[in-house]
Write a protein that binds this DNA or RNA. Structure first.
Ligand SMILES: [Mn+2]
Ligand SMILES: [Mn+2]
Ligand SMILES: [Zn+2]
Ligand SMILES: [Zn+2]
Lengths: 138, 138
DNA sequence: CGCCACATTGGACTTTGTCCAAGTAAGGGG
DNA sequence: CCCCTTACTTGGACAAAGTCCAATGTGGCG
């Protein structure tokens, strides 16, 4: 994630403690946190960071394409730092656990012309739902 | 949609003016309204209907499987009365217009065992995004 | 018709997110 | 190395979306 910090510096961002902490929180595999979860973890490292700054920073990262917004649950938006490798999501319907997945095939190609209604279709988001091994065992 | 009212009566629902109005509002093709939009249209037909009743009724319809919740935008949930024919959605990124679509192929089959992480995968939701003809013209 | 379990209501409350005016500090120029 | 400019941060007010509840109303059976 320090490459992210490099890229941001390159884009003229001022490097603040707050932005460094948000970037740190968004590091790792299968990370799909809500804004408030990001804030809670950021506060653990930098107690005075505000909710507004977390929202601002996440919004900026999204508009730079460094982080994706995903709508896997129907409540809060989740922020996905894995923006550079296209992927989809597998969500546990019971506990909400989220995994990145890489299905075969190209769902864009599966949408025939007759089903496009004149739209310029550019993107597709696929969410698989099921029950994770943990929840199935319980 | 009067088949819906029949089915509900069969399930022991009391037939109230409010429930009839909500069912009426949810009639038609490509209908994907937010709860507040449902409420606004219901009020036009029955001015004293409350927001709480609209939320209650929508929730009941969803848990009976008569209506689907879809999360095509990242703001309010949308309610989809087309619950009995499986389909996916095509959304305009500019104006939010939503169309039902029926892609070829079965995306569930495209998720290899090695990408299932032990989940029992039962469902998949596909959202295509693009620009509708109207917005492209403007 | 009368009853009562179920349904509806309005408002308070929660969650998620946005906005703003005032204060703070990054970092380039001197 | 310090100062100044300007971008950044902050807390709190506000808004939108949704939940909950005690009081009230009513569908439909007997
Ligand atoms: Mn992801
Ligand atoms: Mn639909
Ligand atoms: Zn689970
Ligand atoms: Zn459009």
């Amino acid at each position: 994630m320090s490459d992210l910090l490099e890229r941001l510096r390159g884009r003229g961002w001022r490097m603040t403690a707050q932005r460094r902490v948000v970037a740190e929180v968004l590091d790792g595999e299968h990370v799909h946190l809500t804004a408030d979860e990001v804030h809670a973890r950021a506060v653990a490292k930098l107690p005075e960071i505000s909710r507004a700054t977390v929202y601002n920073t996440l919004g900026e990262l999204v508009s730079l394409g460094e982080v994706l917004e995903v709508a896997t649950d129907k409540r809060a938006k989740r922020y996905d730092p894995n923006a550079h490798r296209p992927h989809h999501h597998l969500v546990c319907a019971r506990c909400g656990a989220i995994r990145d997945v890489h299905p075969d095939g190209n769902p864009l190609a599966d949408l025939p012309e007759s089903e496009r209604f004149g739209f310029m279709v550019s993107d597709v988001e696929v969410t698989y739902r099921g029950v994770c091994p943990n929840c199935a065992a319980a």
